[in-house]
Design a protein around this nucleic acid. Structure first.
Lengths: 150, 150
DNA sequence: TCCTCTTGTTAGGCTACCCTAACTCTCTGG
DNA sequence: CCAGAGAGTTAGGGTAGCCTAACAAGAGGA
């Protein structure tokens, strides 16, 4: 399975919340690809056991497909959350997460998951606010405890 | 240019420190691909103006190629440094950086660059050590200033 | 009902990679 | 100096994606 196939799976998952079948057109619009490209991918993913595909009907995820989708979804959320927490705006964080999630391995996901947890445990620590300011302005907020001599 | 092409460029850059020409075989070994695959890519990259290619001789980077390589190198270093700083072991950090660098956009690189700088400015802050411990052990080091009631 | 619009599919073709088999060049050692 | 080893190239083929053009199915209104 290529990286792109994973994106199809995620989108299908997203579009099928509630168990509805997913149509070629919706997916084509999401991915900005042609209808035939989607049909073709549906067939390949069905072949590989991720989708139930019936001509002129649409697709649903198999258990295997859903499992993969849930995994990808989790990665995506982690990565997005991480990037957003550091200061990327939400849209950007989402887009970047989308690309990174297909290449990164589980250990890295774990690392970042822990990092997000760690930050959330501390309820947005002061250093994070300081970092964000640094990222946005390029300047460091003066740390009030340290006085530089004139 | 596809993602893979960028990997070729980076490897060529790395193998040509000192200005030496780079041979098909070395690249093939690095990437674990066949010799013809490398020849083919050399030709494509030369066509696109990144390499000087002469049959049976080897390649050198053009200015355009070097510029790209330097950019990729910087990204790579940033990503690796970042992952390593958080606690991934060096080899792993390197491998992951390799994959991520080809998909991420400049803003994200900037974000992570700033983050690395921020940490280094503070000379490995205490929270980082605490985070690493959390990542490795799954447990939080008790923060000495906060006492929980019995 | 049936005709038309929309959606879906097939056919045929493209690029970026990858491969093996077979051939060619370079270069070094005897 | 020239033969053979080893490196490089060409030819031919494969997969994953993408596209357009042309045709097919199905659903809704006259």
């Amino acid at each position: 399975m290529g990286r792109r196939a994973e994106e199809y799976i995620e989108i299908i998952y997203d579009l099928s919340r509630g168990g509805e079948r997913v149509h070629v057109k919706e997916v084509a619009e999401r991915l900005n690809v042609s209808l035939p490209s989607v049909t073709e991918m549906f067939q390949r993913l069905a072949e590989a056991g991720f989708l139930n595909y019936h001509r002129y009907y649409g697709v649903t995820l198999t258990d295997k497909g859903r499992k993969l989708a849930e995994d990808l979804e989790k990665r995506h959320q982690t990565l997005k959350e991480f990037l957003h927490l550091l200061g990327l705006e939400e849209e950007e964080a989402d887009r970047e997460a989308c690309k990174i999630e297909h290449v990164v391995d589980p250990e890295t996901v774990k690392l970042l998951t822990k990092f997000v947890e760690f930050i959330e445990m501390h309820d947005s620590p002061r250093w994070l606010a300081r970092f964000r300011k640094y990222y946005l302005s390029g300047e460091l907020e003066r740390c009030p405890k340290i006085k530089d001599g004139v």
